[in-house]
Nucleic acid binder design. Structure first.
Lengths: 315, 315
DNA sequence: CTGAAAGCGCTTACAG
DNA sequence: CTGAAAGCGCTTACAG
């Protein structure tokens, strides 16, 4: 069922059908009504590929993500999808499974006019190479959470340095005297958190380590806090060092969610990223890039929502 | 950068460029090499919309899902994405946020030639209406986990009735004497689980309730088991009835994952669905539908992987 | 082995 | 208010 079929049935030109269906005011109401009625009867649906070809835009936006397990992936995807729908765009989520080949494949698709822009959460390729062609062609790209190692990119992320500092302060307030800092992921978000955590410890002369085990110079009586991006890192650390850690005495500080065994810790703090604000900011930047208003590259940091206490025992 | 540009530069016809780039053996090797070299130099990328228009296929498959929070969504999405990539398809995940309007919108897109087929996890519309046009046009559709209320559909799901029966048996083996059955979701998967759970209880004359609270005729000494699709349903029940339930004595049985507070229960059983098998089966059905080999509608049940014991205390 | 031509299903100046 | 024509960027019979 195409415009041509409808044109034949209504005995008008195909161009009139096209106009009528898009409610072009130039077509006579009577003609329009007839055409729309027939089109509905026949179950006409436009062929989007044809429309895209002539208009040069797709009204699709891609979101390229490593997997579906992390909150930083799930939540922005939901919020973006919602807010972009209202703007007339469809958000299409594609997974690269932390695989560099698949990642390049998906970036390549973007160069083939499948979308008008893309949100990217990178995690395998921080080099310029796979992005080169997109960047040369000024394809609208917005990075979320973490960014590649080159400067020609726009990124929306949490104010991770400040957030990590705040998280550490909470732990100190709860009695932490020594720290294990586990922000070891090799991405810009973890690097910022690491900096935020370590800076304050150096400033306050608090002993800390960034290794996988508890060092000898840690005082056996000093209360230990472990800070990390996810509870699984902390749990893993706990298991390796369970002989030295006392059950129910360690303090834990993580981002986003706590999924660990609570009984192991005396206090658990969770720093909540403001995913809704991140998504809204990313959507806004994308739309202005598509409109051609924002040629600039910038990194926008969103303040973390709050730090909540999942568990606190009085001592 | 289009075929036309390359044709001009190489001083050949556009059709020769098209053939050369697709390695048509008819073009002379020397010509092909020149063309491919130039195309690479110029960073040529085909316009997929144009190709789709002439070929009448997109090599895209959509997956339409309610949200990203459930394992039944996350895991099949990952496995499908992986296996379909190998077959030359891109899997595009779209979210309808449990919203009927958005859901219809996405189904409508499918009628507009955006994909060659779609995997659907329904949860708002079990009626025929929104699917009608797709079904009339024999658009390849594979439902996952749950299915709509009409028969013209192909579904891949867990053998939920058997799985629920097995889960109940585990609880009985662990000492359960009375049951709370919470499979209350209004979808085909929950209905099958409900049946599997209740059937065996009736057969074995075990007292059970399907309500939101513990009924009076429950013996106060008999060990209680609660079975549900997710741990959050059980936790919610526990909180409402915490005054009657004894801490650490109830038995819990759920599907997929345990996220609850373990200390409340004496035994926790988790029935693991075989998401990999579900995804593989769904992919296979989709491909044969696209190839036109499978006009049949069928429901395929995948045996649950296993029931694991997350917590068991000896008594 | 290569070219000229038609066509996929749309949109949109340009005439009338 | 409507039609005839060109064109978006490809692919593929059909000739030669």
């Amino acid at each position: 069922m195409t415009l041509k079929n409808i044109a034949e049935i209504c005995k008008v030109d195909i161009s009139t059908v096209s106009r009528a269906l898009r409610h072009d005011p130039r077509v006579r109401e009577q003609t329009r009504i007839l055409i729309c009625k027939k089109a509905a009867e026949l179950g006409y649906n436009p062929n989007l590929a044809a429309r895209q070809l002539v208009l040069g835009k797709t009204l699709n936006l891609w979101m390229i993500i490593p997997d579906l397990k992390q909150s930083i992936v799930q939540e922005p995807a939901q919020y973006l999808s919602e807010s972009l729908n209202c703007q007339g765009y469809d958000l299409l989520v594609t997974l690269y499974q932390n695989d560099a080949k698949t990642f390049s494949h998906l970036l390549n698709r973007l160069s083939q006019n499948v979308a008008d822009g893309a949100f990217i959460i990178p995690s395998v390729d921080y080099e310029l190479a796979p992005y080169e062609s997109l960047i040369k062609n000024r394809f609208p790209l917005v990075f979320i959470d973490r960014q590649p190692d080159f400067s020609e990119c726009t990124t929306v992320t949490t104010a991770n340095t400040d957030a990590a500092t705040a998280l550490v302060k909470q732990c100190i307030k709860a009695g932490a005297e020594q720290f294990i800092v586990l922000f070891n992921e090799t991405n810009s978000a973890a690097v910022a958190r690491f900096k935020g955590a370590v800076d304050i410890m150096i400033r306050e002369r608090i002993p800390f380590t960034t290794g996988k085990s508890i060092p000898e110079n840690f005082s056996s009586s000093g209360k230990i806090a472990v800070v990390a991006s996810s509870s699984s890192s902390i749990e893993q650390f706990y298991e390796v060092n369970s002989s030295t850690l006392h059950l129910g005495e360690t303090i834990a500080g993580v981002f986003d969610n706590w999924f660990g065994l609570s009984e192991r810790y005396s206090h658990i703090f969770v720093c909540k990223q403001d995913f809704r604000a991140i998504a809204n900011q990313a959507a806004e930047l994308m739309l202005s890039k598509i409109a051609g208003n924002s040629e600039m590259f910038q990194t926008i940091e969103i303040k973390a929502d709050q730090i909540i206490s999942v568990k606190a025992i009085s001592h």
